[in-house]
């Protein structure tokens, strides 16, 4: 299984990459780590005219601090995200979820930005980015724009990225105060995609839950927030009973699909169980 031929560009800067994308013709694909794109090209589900390879654009790699935000370069590999000290300190939820992505070999190549731009609803990182209110910095021919996570994920495998644009970095607000975090993922076998997963960040204050942010993986064509559960948890007592009660509304507003792994109603059940577990762990119970 060999991909169809394509024209190949190997830029070394973001500006060169944008130029290569603009000149690439009708169907341009951007190659980050390639762990989703190359399999799709081998199966010839995609046969782009031009592939723009970001391997050598070093400015897109790495994690840095910028005031109240962590800034994660789009080409930072999953393996680098997992071992990054800033992420461990300010957004351990990202590291915890990233560690569950695929397998070691894939995590060595796959990238944070690539996984988000691919926007697979069963992918682990979109729900985490949504739960953490991340912002997406997108470069285009006319400069840069910033899109909040809530607007970035538009539909199945579809994001706010327009033709000719490039995701360059993801800004994640540092969480201050007593936050706990947990990613609860349910799948059947090694290296499988999430059947359902829940990303929870919970801030505790004086024995209560002051605020909860909950992102849901694979509960619809895009990642979703469990808004009803978040509302029920705001100001609630940090007790197993209160959390279990709030988690009952986790499936509200979701539209999970049925596939060979699970029926929709099973996913609606599973999301309640995983939300209870994730919030309980994040709240330190």
């Amino acid at each position: 299984m060999i991909p169809a031929p394509f024209a190949y560009a190997r830029p070394t800067t973001v500006d060169e990459a944008l130029q290569a994308i603009a000149e690439g013709g009708e169907d341009v694909k951007i190659l980050a780590g390639g762990q989703s794109l190359i399999p799709v090209m081998r199966l010839r589900l995609a046969a782009p005219e031009t592939v723009v390879d970001l391997s050598k654009v070093s400015e897109l790699r790495g994690v840095r601090e910028d005031g109240d935000s962590l800034v994660i370069g789009a080409m930072t590999t999953h393996a680098d995200v997992v071992r990054d000290p800033l992420i461990q300190q300010y957004a351990p939820l990202i590291a915890e979820a990233t560690e569950t992505v695929a397998d070691r070999q894939v995590r060595h190549r796959g990238t944070f930005g690539g996984a988000l731009a691919h926007a697979d609803p069963a992918g682990d990182l979109p729900a985490v980015a949504l739960a953490l209110d991340a912002e997406f910095v997108i470069a285009g021919q006319n400069g840069r724009r910033t899109v909040p996570a809530a607007d970035f994920f538009v539909d199945y495998l579809t994001t706010a990225l327009e033709e000719g644009e490039l995701l360059v970095e993801i800004r994640v607000p540092k969480l201050t105060g007593q936050w706990g975090m947990r990613y609860e993922k349910f799948n059947r076998v090694a290296q499988a995609w999430s059947i359902v997963a829940v990303a929870a960040a919970v801030r505790r204050e004086d024995g209560h839950i002051a605020e909860a942010r909950i992102g849901l993986t694979n509960m619809g064509p895009t990642p979703l927030r469990a808004r009803a559960t978040e509302a029920a948890l705001a100001g609630a007592a940090a007790t197993p009973e209160a959390i279990a009660e709030a988690a009952r509304s986790a499936a509200e507003g979701t539209s999970p699909s049925s596939d060979l792994n699970a029926q929709a109603d099973y996913r609606e059940h599973l999301v309640q169980v995983l939300t209870r577990r994730a919030v309980s762990a994040a709240a330190g119970l």
């Binding site: 190659l31 390639g34 060595h108 190549r109």
Partner: peptide, 11 residues
Amino acid sequence: SVKSCTVFAVQ
């Protein structure tokens, strides 16, 4: 470690 069937030689 990488899966060499999922890396282009040019990479």
